[in-house]
Design a protein around this nucleic acid. Structure first.
Lengths: 354, 354
DNA sequence: GTTAGCAGTCGTAAGATTAGAGTGCTAACA
DNA sequence: TGTTAGCACTCTAATCTTACGACTGCTAAC
C-alpha cells in the first residue's frame, strides 16, 4: 500500500492532535480538524489503512488511534527535513558574557529546560581531547599540594594530593615552571612516557613529587572523562506529564537526573553512536530506541555541539514520547546555530573550510 | 487530665505502629500488640482520652487513630531524652581519608541518605567565617585573571575576572605575593576598607587590577554565602513513601532538591533559629513547623555540625512525617559523634578548652 | 476499674449500570 | 470507483449501589 499525500496529511493530523491532547484521536475529530473536507467515514477507511501499515495503533476496539513508534519516527523525520528558519535572539548575549565554560554550560542547559519545558542535560566537553593551558601548584598544608589545572575553554579542575616530601614554596614554584614548560599545549593523549621522562629529568631531587603531580594530572583528566561532568535542569518538568506521572516510571528518570552516572552512560552512548560528521546535527530517539531502551515512554533529542577548538559535547532534552517535537527540534536547532555563530571557526572565517 | 504511664505506653504503641504501617491503628491492635494485657474496650477508653488531649486524631468516625503533630512531638521528645549508646563504625575511615572538604561533605550526605533511606542534605560551612589560607592569581588569557581562593578546610573556589590592564606573568606573581601577605589568615569580616587600602598602597601601578581582585574575593565569599553550597542525596527516596507519592506533594520536594535555592533558604532558617549553644544538638521539625511550613506532610531532622576550627554547617534528613524517627535520630547522633571525635578540638586536646 | 457485647458509623472494594465515543460494515450515491 | 450516511456493536470510564468490615462509643455486668 502506498503512503499517499492524503494519508500523510491524516497521519500528521493525528499525531499533532495526539501530541496536544494526549488522548486517542477519532475519525470525526480529523474530519473537522483537517483542511481536507472529508467525512468521518472516509477518514475511517484511511485510518484503517494507516493502522494496517503500522503507523498508528488502536489502544482498544472503540477508541481513536494513537501514533506508533513508526508513526512518531515518520513525523519526526519529516519535521527534520523542513528547514525552518525561525531565529530568535535569546542566549546570544548570555553566551558572550561568560568566562567560564562551566557557567556557560549551566546557563545553556537551564535555558533549554525553560524553553522546552522538558528536562535538559548537557555534557561538558571531553577533557581528554582538551589541551592543557597551564597548571599551578601550591602548598595548602604539610605534605599537601594543591594542583590546579586550567584547560582550553577555561575549564578548571583542582585536586589536593599528598606527597612524600614536603617541598618549600620556592621548590613548588620551580617545579610548576618545569612542568608547565613541557605540558602546556598538550592534551591527554600527548602525555606519553617520553614526555613524562623528560619532565622527570628536569625535576632535580623531586622526582617523586613530580611523578605524583603528573599522575594526578592524568588521573584528573581521565576521571573527568569517565564521570564526565553533566549538568541538568528541569528534571521536575517530567512530573508535569500525566503519562510519566506514575511513580515507577518517573523514579527511573528522576533518579537518573539525580545521580548522573546513568546520564553519563547515556551521553557516551549517544556520542559513540553518532559519527563525527553528523556533528551539530540533531538526533531523535523515540521510545526504547538506542540509548534509552529502559525508558519506553520517553523520547530523547540530542545534538553534538562544538565550541570552537575541539570542545565537543552532547546536549539533549528528555521528555515524554508525546513531546512537542517541532518546538524542541527548532529550539535545539536554534541553539546550535547560535553556538556556531558565536564560537564557530574563531568567529570570523579564519580558516575557510566550508 | 494526666498523661499517666499507661497512656504513654498506649500512645507510643500507636505511634510506633503507625510509623510502621502507615495505617490508622485500632484499639484491638493495641490490645494484642502492647505488653499491657488490656482488652480493646479499655484501650478504647484510653484512646478516647488521648484524643481529647490532642495527641491522636481520628481521620474519620470509624477509623483507628493516627498521631497528631502534638503526638509526634511528644514521641520525638521522649526518644531524644533516652540516650542510646549504640555506636557504629561507619564513616570513620571515610572521614579521615578525605582531603577536600567538598568530598567529605558529599560522602557524608550520601551515607546519611543510604543509612536512613530518606533524602539528605548538607550545607557547606559558611564561607564568611572561614579564614583565607591563601590565594593565587594566574593569567589564562588576555586581560583575564584566574583567581583561586583556598580557604580553611581546603575549600577551593575559583573565578575568572576580566581586568582593564593586561599584566604580564611577573606582575601577576608579585601582586599575588602582595595580596597574600595581607590577606591570608583573614576571614570576610576582617577585610575592612583599611585592609583594602593597605594592599592598594603596595600595589604600585596596578591599583585597578588589585581592586578588581579584592572585589572578586569579597564577592566570591559573599556569593558562596547566599547561594551556599548544598549537597544532597537520595531525593528519590521520597518517592518510595505512599503519602508523598502523589505528584503535587512530591514535586515541591523534588524540585527543592533540584534547584537548591529553596534548600539554601531552609538551611539558613535552621541555622538562625538554633542558638549557637545548641550546636551539635539535634532539631526535629514536624509537619509545618519552623522552616518547613510548606511541606505539611514532611518532617525534617537537622543538626549543626562543626568540623574543627569554626567550620560550621547544617546537616539534615527530610522524610515523610511518618518517618522512623528513632533510626534517623540515632543515625544522626552517631554521625555527629564521629565528626566530633575526628575533628573535635584538633583531634587530641591540643588546646584544653572544655 | 475492667470487660463483653452490641448498635451504629463510615470508608472502601466490588459489582452493576449507563453514557458516550468510536469503530466497521453495508448500502446508497455521484 | 471513491465518498458518504446510517446503524449495530464494542469497549471504557464514570456513576451509582451494595455489601462488607473495621472501628468506635455506650451500656450493663463483673
Amino acid at each position: 500500500m502506498e503512503l499517499d499525500a492524503r494519508k500523510i496529511i491524516i497521519l500528521k493530523t493525528i499525531i499533532k492532535n495526539y501530541l496536544e491532547t494526549g488522548e486517542p484521536v477519532g475519525s470525526r475529530t480529523i474530519s473537522k480538524y483537517s483542511e481536507l473536507n472529508l467525512s468521518s467515514a472516509t477518514i475511517r477507511n484511511e485510518m484503517s489503512d494507516l493502522e494496517e501499515m503500522g503507523y498508528i495503533i488502536q489502544p482498544h476496539t472503540s477508541a481513536g488511534r494513537i501514533p506508533s513508534d513508526k508513526g512518531y519516527r515518520f513525523y519526526v523525520d519529516s519535521i527534520m527535513k523542513e528547514s525552518d528558519d525561525r531565529v530568535n535572539e535569546v542566549t546570544e548575549l548570555m553566551v558572550k558574557k561568560v568566562d567560564k565554560l562551566e557557567m556557560l554550560l549551566k546557563s545553556l542547559v537551564r535555558h533549554l529546560a525553560l524553553d522546552t519545558n522538558y528536562a535538559a542535560l548537557i555534557s561538558a566537553p571531553a577533557l581528554s581531547k582538551n589541551k592543557i593551558k597551564y597548571l599551578q601548584l601550591s602548598r595548602p598544608g604539610e605534605r599537601k599540594l594543591l594542583l590546579i589545572l586550567v584547560l582550553e575553554g577555561n575549564m578548571i579542575k583542582n585536586e589536593i594530593i599528598t606527597v612524600d616530601e614536603d617541598p618549600d614554596m620556592e621548590t613548588v614554584l620551580n617545579l610548576t615552571i618545569v612542568i608547565n614548560n613541557r605540558l602546556s599545549g598538550l592534551c591527554l593523549n600527548d602525555i606519553t612516557p617520553t614526555v613524562v621522562n623528560e619532565v622527570l629529568a628536569q625535576s632535580g631531587g623531586h622526582k617523586s613529587t613530580v611523578r605524583a603531580v603528573l599522575n594526578a594530572v592524568v588521573e584528573m583528566i581521565e576521571a573527568g572523562e569517565d564521570a564526565a561532568d553533566i549538568y541538568t535542569s528541569g528534571a521536575t518538568n517530567i512530573l508535569k506529564y500525566p503519562e510519566l506521572t506514575d511513580i515507577e516510571k518517573a523514579t527511573e528518570l528522576i533518579s537518573a537526573f539525580e545521580e548522573k552516572d546513568k546520564l553519563t552512560k547515556l551521553v557516551s552512548e549517544v556520542s559513540e553512536s553518532t559519527d563525527s560528521d553528523t556533528k551539530n546535527s540533531l538526533q531523535v530517539y523515540i521510545g526504547g530506541e538506542g540509548p534509552i531502551q529502559n525508558m519506553r515512554d520517553c523520547s530523547l533529542v540530542t545534538a553534538n555541539y562544538e565550541l570552537g577548538d575541539g570542545l565537543r559535547g552532547v546536549i539533549g532534552v528528555i521528555g515524554p514520547k508525546r513531546m512537542d517535537y517541532e518546538k524542541v527540534l527548532s529550539t535545539m536547532k536554534n541553539l546550535m546555530e547560535q553556538l556556531d555563530k558565536t564560537f564557530g571557526k574563531d568567529s570570523d572565517t579564519k580558516k575557510g573550510k566550508g
